[in-house]
Simulated assay, not measured.
Amino acid sequence: MGSTAKAIMTGFICRLCSEQKKVVIHLYTSRAKKLKLLKKIKLLPISVDKYDNLPKTICEQCVSKLEAQYDLLQKIRRSNSVHRSHRMHHSNGRCPAECPLHGEDESTESEMEVQGTSS
C-alpha cells in the first residue's frame, strides 16, 4: 500500500487508532464540521492542531465510537442536571410538581439500596 509517510500525506492514517484505512474523514471538511468532530475530539485526552504534522483524518469506525462516547457523556450530563435539580426541589421531603422527577417512583431506588447493604 506504500510507505507510512505517503499514507499520512494522502490521508489514509486515522488520527485516533493509527490504522491505515481506505475511507476516512478529514477533520477540516464540511462533513467533519457537520458531525462536530473537532468539538467531540476535545473530550479526548489528545490535542489536535490544524498545523501539527499528525494525521488530520479519522476512520469511520473511530467516528462511530466517538459519536457513542459523546452521546453517553451528554446523557450523563443531562442526568446529573436532572438529579441536582431534583434534590434542589426537595426542601421539605416532598416531591413538588416542578421537580423534573415528579411522579417517579423513588421506592425502587430505596429498596435497591437496602438490598445492596443487607447482602
Rank of each mutant, 00 (worst) to 15 (best):
L16T: 06
L16Y: 02
L16E: 03
C17F: 03
S18I: 06
S18V: 04
S18N: 12
E19L: 04
Q20F: 11
K21R: 11
K21F: 06
K21A: 11
V24Y: 00
I25E: 01
I25W: 04
I25H: 02
L27S: 03
L27W: 01
Y28C: 03
Y28K: 04
T29M: 07
S30I: 05
R31Y: 10
R31T: 08
A32D: 00
A32F: 02
K33Q: 05
K34G: 09
K34F: 04
K34C: 10
L35C: 03
L37Y: 07
L37K: 01
L38E: 01
K39Q: 13
K40T: 02
K40L: 08
K42P: 00
K42L: 07
L44N: 02
L44W: 11
L44V: 06
L44D: 14
P45R: 09
P45E: 13
P45K: 15
P45H: 14
S47R: 15
S47A: 14
V48S: 01
V48C: 03
D49N: 11
K50R: 13
Y51R: 04
Y51E: 09
Y51V: 08
D52P: 00
N53C: 10
L54N: 15
P55Q: 12
K56R: 07
K56W: 00
T57W: 06
T57H: 15
I58N: 00
I58E: 00
I58H: 06
I58G: 01
C59K: 09
C59F: 04
E60G: 10
Q61L: 08
C62G: 05
V63T: 06
S64K: 12
L66R: 15
L66P: 14
E67P: 07
E67N: 13
A68D: 12
Q69L: 12
Q69R: 06
Y70W: 11
D71N: 13
D71L: 13
D71W: 00
L72M: 07
K75C: 14
K75W: 05
I76G: 03
R77T: 10
R77Y: 06
R78M: 13
R78C: 12
R78D: 11
R78L: 14
S79I: 07
S81E: 07
S81H: 04
H83W: 15
R84T: 07
R84Y: 11
R84I: 10
H86E: 12
H86C: 13
